[in-house]
Amino acid sequence: MSKMESENIYYEGRIKVPYKWYVGETGSRFFIALRDKKEIWGIRCPRCRKVYVPPVKNCWECFIPTKEWVRLKDTGTLESFTVVHYPNEVIPKKPPVVYGLIKIDGADGSLLHFVGDIDISELKTGMRVRAVFADERAGNILDIKHFAPIP
């Protein structure tokens, strides 16, 4: 498709290549636990003992394979958040959308996810949250619907 604008033509097109990203064995195990059991699992580095969520096949600090799976709770602490006010076709929600970095109890870092079931004015860092699982789960990150404040 092209449109005329004065003497200059603009050409409207797109790049639509269908992608199918392989999650891999490590990630699949994480998602399957979310999907089938509503459980959050992390993985621990045998050397630095850091627990990664989502799991990694290799600890990037120690550069060795991780091995030990660790069952984590579904609760955590909100380390940072933002309220997004603009619409964006890649966000599966209407604005305002709340993103959070959630440090799940027992993990050494935070998980990026949505925060929901909350009055935006009550958001603050350090607040305790719990994972709310989606009713329909397909084996991906959206199997967690969002994290909601623990009353």
Binding site: Y22, V23, K57
Partner: peptide, 13 residues
């Protein structure tokens, strides 16, 4: 032809 067992970052590793 296909490495379903690893994601890209793991393949690079």
């Amino acid at each position: 032809s296909s490495r379903k067992d690893v994601n890209g970052v793991e393949l690079i590793n």
